[in-house]
Amino acid sequence: MRILGIETSCDETGVALYDSEKGIIAEALYSQVELHAEYGGVVPELASRDHVRKLLPLIEEVMTQAKCTSAEIDAIAYTSGPGLVGALMVGAAVAKSLAFAWGVPSVPVHHMEGHLLAPLLEDPSPEAPFIALLVSGGHTQLVNVTSIGHYDILGESLDDAAGEAFDKTAKMLGLGYPGGPALAVAAEGGNPDRFRFPRPMVDRPGLDFSFSGLKTFTLNTRDDCAAAPGGLTEQDVADIAWAFQDAVVDTLMLKCRRALKETGAKRLVVAGGVSANRLLRQKLAEMVLKQRAEVFYPQLRYCTDNGAMIAYAGYQRMLAGAESDLKVQVRARWPLSELLS
């Protein structure tokens, strides 16, 4: 079975072709980072227009890479939500149109299920049951995965997602866009002993997250440094970046440890853009070793949005009997807990 996957939920246009016997056989990705950099964040209308320009050429590129014709495609999977409505509509409309023209089913895919399943493209891949930490610009969730398609949300962010907090803090510190990677680079020059930021919500029961208070604490620290003689220095920025990153990573690690202990699970899957953070990977590796557990990640290129995860999630949806009619429907908000098998 061959599934063409289309991802257009935000600022990456991703296309990939998944073969049930060979895995990902072709893929292409276009990032809009340069387009949005001058605005310091994603501009939805510009994102939608760029998907319109790039999607069909990328599909042609992938089909050419794979030496595949439309007659060899069994289904088209596309991101149906959550995400930017305009961006989602571009992918959905193209997917539905091609499905109609090629006489194949179209399969709507939940963006976060795509991230959750991305580590299953690796060898070795985790077997369910496992705990998944989904940590990206728009979501921070701990999910108990009893089997593919069966998800129980154990905890999630009550305000900003971890990736969003990274981006906003980077902007606050004048580190540019995209903020998460820029802040991580700045933190490499930071003094780990200068500041100690709070670890939000780790002193109370439960597995929910909250990063808005940490963001405010960071802002106050920045303002204190700026008010000192000499103003805000480059070293101040590096030290604040280190303290902020350390606090977020520690919080994520502590909540993952709690989730493993409470469920008795021995496998942890970590996916989403923030899963590429080196400090997070280091601390989780140390934690799972002590817990006698294992941790799994997607390849670095599959941590951010991509077509491969959508193609694979679409394949799993096909196995479960999911497909849709030609009506173009997307969801800007779509809780993973509402995803039906």
Rank of each mutant, 00 (worst) to 15 (best):
Q235P: 03
H51K: 14
L214G: 06
V62R: 00
M112Q: 02
L173P: 03
L116Y: 08
M1H: 15
W102T: 12
I3E: 05
C68F: 07
R278M: 13
F195T: 00
F296A: 10
G272W: 04
S337F: 08
D50F: 06
E38D: 14
S9P: 03
M309Q: 02
I59D: 05
F296V: 11
V15D: 01
G155W: 10
L46Y: 08
T169Q: 02
V85P: 01
A95C: 11
L173I: 06
F100M: 09
F166N: 01
Y315S: 04
A71N: 14
D250F: 02
D50H: 13
D325S: 13
A170C: 05
E164F: 06
R292K: 15
D50S: 14
T13D: 09
G91C: 05
Q32F: 01
G91Q: 06
A293V: 09
S341A: 15
F209N: 05
A186T: 11
Y78Q: 14
Y30E: 08
I3W: 04
V145S: 04
S337C: 09
A228I: 04
E7G: 06
Y302L: 15
G91T: 13
L158W: 10
V62N: 07
E7M: 10
T146R: 15
P198G: 11
D223W: 07
G190C: 06
R49A: 07
Q291T: 14
H115E: 02
A265L: 11
V330C: 00
K283A: 11
A66L: 12
A93S: 12
T263M: 01
E188G: 09
G163E: 02
W334M: 02
H110V: 02
S20H: 11
F244V: 06
A77M: 02
C256G: 12
